[in-house]
Design a protein around this nucleic acid. Structure first.
Length: 307
DNA sequence: GCCTGAAGCCGTGTTACGTCA
DNA sequence: CGTGACGTAACACGGCTTCAG
């Protein structure tokens, strides 16, 4: 099943071009002087994304208003509450000092017993349970695009992003933590699948080799003294069960390598001309890996288009 | 230079909530 | 309408790094 929110964020038709759009402002959050004066690629990306999202916001909101028949969807309403709440400023100030707070203070902020909570006005959390704020599609889109630029945030970036989105810095921090976790989980799944297929291929190859070994042993035990083992230098398989000069041997070689000479080195046998480790030969995907890096040193990251 | 405690960040696992089929 | 599955925000906890004293 496709992730609903992330999929929707991609459906916003966001332009990923950086640095070309003017400074945009999302909802009622104030423009951050931190990012306004910044010329870093991250800030440029943030500005661009926010501008694009702001342009898409109206159409998006109207779409949902039409779909709901009367109003914005709950996520957007929640986002509106969050972004227009006076807590935005309070959250900003708390976030600004949050970097200097100790763990106990952060704990208080987390539990809401002493900190500022943007949802405390909702009155729905009287039982003391945590209230889950659903990020709006716009907010998620901005966070997503920023994540593509940097998967981690420094305090300045976190604060700027929180200010723009009308969220608490802690919320931005949590979102990035969860996002990194999801990315890693996805990558783990991909790697797992990769290794599984590789293992299956190796098992098949192992079966084949075992059978080949059995054949060799049988051949060795054969009474005929003229029997000679010939292994194809290219494919490393037993070429024949008779002498090297027999037509059978040539037949094999002609079949496998019609244009190759008998003295052809094994390395030159690949049809593509590239030399790959033997295990890569029966696992095509590994060829791509070997052309870039080794398996152990640099496993490929899950490309962002997966999300 | 080494040690130590505080502070902050991050990864990992878990919980709880919202949404959808 | 009730329910289970799923996605995800929020939380808890421990490890690591940095820095001041």
């Amino acid at each position: 099943m496709m992730p609903r929110t992330s999929g929707a964020s991609l459906d916003l038709g966001l332009s990923l071009g950086l640095g070309l759009t003017s400074q945009g402002s999302l909802s009622s959050s104030t423009t951050s002087p931190t990012t306004a004066g910044s010329s870093s690629p991250w800030a440029a990306a943030l500005s661009s994304v926010v501008a694009d999202v702001a342009r898409a916001r109206d159409a998006h909101a109207h779409y949902h208003a039409a779909a709901a028949g009367l109003d914005l969807d709950p996520a957007d309403r929640a986002a509106m509450r969050a972004s227009t709440s006076p807590d935005s400023a309070a959250a900003l100030s708390s976030g600004a000092s949050g970097d200097n707070t100790n763990k106990r203070d952060r704990e208080l902020e987390r539990t809401g017993s002493g900190g500022v909570r943007s949802d405390e006005e909702d009155g729905a959390d009287g039982a003391g349970g945590r209230k889950k704020l659903r990020l709006s599609k716009d907010q998620a889109a901005v966070l997503e695009e920023c994540f593509k630029t940097h998967s981690t945030l420094n305090p300045k970036q976190k604060l700027a992003l929180a200010t723009r989105l009308g969220l608490r810095p802690r919320q931005v921090e949590v979102w990035f933590q969860n996002r990194r976790a999801r990315t890693k989980l996805k990558q783990t799944e991909v790697d797992c699948e990769y290794l599984k297929r590789w293992c299956e291929r190796l098992a098949d190859e192992n079966k084949r080799l075992e059978k080949e070994l059995a054949d060799l042993r049988a051949l060795k035990a054969a009474p005929s003294p003229a029997a000679t083992l010939t292994i194809c230098p290219s494919c490393r398989r037993v070429a024949a069960t008779a002498t090297a000069a027999t037509p059978t041997n040539h037949h094999h070689h002609q079949q496998c390598h019609p244009k190759s000479s008998s003295s052809l080195p094994a390395a030159a046998a690949g049809g593509s001309g590239s030399v790959v480790p033997s295990h890569c030969q029966f696992f095509p995907a590994a060829v791509d890996r070997t052309s870039q890096s080794t398996w152990n040193t640099a496993p490929p990251l899950v490309t962002r288009e997966l999300f």
